[in-house]
Amino acid sequence: MGAGKKTIIYIFLILLVLVWLLPIFSIVLAAIKSPEQFNTTSFFQFPTKFALIENFKMAIKQWKLHEFFLNSLIYSVTGGVITIIAASMAGFSLVRLKPKFNFPLFLIIYSGTLFPFQMYLIPLYRIFNQIGLYDTKIGMILVYSALCIPFSLFVYRGFYITIPKEIEDAALIDGCNSFQLYSRIFLPQSIAPTAVVALFQMSWIWNDLLFGMVLTRTGSARPVMVSLASMSGVSGGIIPYIMTGVIFTSLPTIILFILLRKYFISGMILSMAGE
């Protein structure tokens, strides 16, 4: 490859990277400026005083972000745990116990990932209102779990298929019953699929806006993204507070990605389903 072409590629990539970094750079600067300084300086000027902590306190005070943050933390953790247990158990049974109709059963559960979420909104809104699950934490946890299970089942099932039969046969000779087989042999080996499920599904729950808007009304059940979205709703919102809110509410998913980044690729491969 010619040096000239290589230079062009570098220039192209550097320009693109600058465009990609501009929003990050802008919000970090906005978040560390006091509102007064933000109004009197251009976006690229550095502040003389570091006001992130003050902004954070105001974002908490005005929008009660911490309450919604806690709600979403509960949803992500509980929804994630329920999904992991339900999907790994089902995957184990489908692959190793192989009951009759195991493939149709898999297809039925997996079909839950096929349709756009809009397909579920109206009936869920109606049913939840009728049976008292509207605007409750329990209702949200149930919905999030149900939405996460199909993909997670696909992940666990695909992984369990690769566990060698010999291991299981050895366990059988030892006289394991099926639950011991699941809890002592399959579950402890499930680190990779569980990491994929945790990364993709817990961050999906955290980032959800749609179900939060439709199925909740008050702070007792509203997830964090709904409250974040409402911060920007009114024009003339105070940008440094809003951007501090953006950073604060993005931290959990950023941390999750950093911790589990090596599972991102395998998760993407899985979500592309067997290519």
Binding site: A90, L97, I109, L142, V143, L147
Partner: peptide, 13 residues
Amino acid sequence: YILPAFLLVFLLL
């Protein structure tokens, strides 16, 4: 083993 996953998806989706 399949029941919890099946019920959640069946009833809610």
